[in-house]
């Protein structure tokens, strides 16, 4: 215990022996992960390997079957009610599907990020204090969408919506930013834009980032550190620098011991190839038009 407290300043996330079962499915199996303040960590792994489940545990959206999840010096599964909400407000979470309220304005969506510091329900822009509105507008400016503040959220493109979601997370003035496949539903160009925005902001604000990704290339060029998950176990944890795509793929392959796993990897690889083909297609289209 005392050593943990001593580490609190540098270690912001400390997961050990985390196991999560959904009925018969084992989503996480003794996963361990330590992240220091300011690190930018990428989670990689096949579909179903437990990336989302791990991220959701960090934010207390899931209760572990066993194991410990310490974030910012607090044991997350032990927290409930107001104290859990207080901890959550120190972590921003960006989701694959953006998860904006479609019928609200962009500005009000950003403001919902500040709900935890306000007491009680808020309906309509007028119900938020001016100070917060100014902050929200500032964050919108930061993500380059100030001119869209009063548009409905569902009138924006996917990439723009994700940038609004980032602004919403910034409203919390977070110490940690969690992102679950933030660019999986975006085209390559918007992906590029969103990912560099996240990195830029993280560097500026000294944020700790844990982000799950599917694109190995992107992960290698973007993250400081790569953590590989397979069947809910951490099978890879190295600095991204000097790591090649082949090495990552090789690690995927080498750790696959049974036939079914190899099949799964082949499927994944052919999916990736199909994705790549689709991307070229898109790029072609863009060139032609």
């Amino acid at each position: 215990m005392s050593t943990q407290v001593g580490n609190e300043d540098s270690v912001v996330i400390d997961v050990s022996g985390l196991t999560k079962e959904f009925g018969r499915t084992v989503a996480l199996q003794g996963a361990s992960l330590t992240v220091a303040r300011g690190e930018i960590v990428v989670l990689l792994g096949l579909s179903g390997s437990g990336k989302s489940t791990l991220l959701r545990h960090l934010d207390g959206l899931e209760t572990p079957t066993s194991g410990s999840v310490r974030v910012l010096g607090q044991e997350v599964p032990r927290l409930t009610g107001r104290r859990l909400r207080a901890l959550r407000s120190r972590m921003g979470f960006v989701f694959q599907q953006f998860d904006l309220v479609p019928s609200l304005t962009v500005l009000e969506n950003v403001l919902t990020g500040a709900l935890s510091e306000l007491r009680g329900p808020r309906i309509g822009l007028w119900s938020y204090p001016k100070r917060l509105k100014l902050t929200a507008l500032g964050h919108l400016d930061r993500v380059g969408l100030l001119d869209r503040a009063y548009q409905r959220a569902d009138t924006l493109s996917g990439g723009q919506q994700q940038r609004v979601a980032i602004a919403r997370a910034l409203m919390q003035d977070p110490e940690i930013l969690l992102a679950d496949e933030p660019v999986a539903s975006l085209d390559p160009e918007s992906s590029e834009q969103v990912m560099s925005l996240i990195r830029e902001i993280a560097m500026d604000e000294g944020l700790t980032v844990v982000c799950s990704l599917h694109q190995v290339d992107l992960a290698l060029s973007w993250g400081d550190r790569i953590v590989g998950l397979r069947h809910g176990e951490v099978v890879l944890d190295t600095p991204a620098e000097g790591l090649s795509k082949a090495e990552v793929m090789e690690i995927y392959g080498r750790v696959a011991t049974s036939t079914t796993e190899l099949e799964a990897i082949e499927v994944e690889l052919s999916d990736a190839a199909a994705d790549a083909a689709a991307e070229t297609h898109l790029a072609d289209g863009a060139l032609r038009s």
Binding site: L84, R85, S89, F95, D99, L115, S116, A169
Partner: peptide, 14 residues
Amino acid sequence: PRRAIRAAGGSKLQ
């Protein structure tokens, strides 16, 4: 959207 508000520390009512 609801999950996003929960993740940001919003209460049930919020």
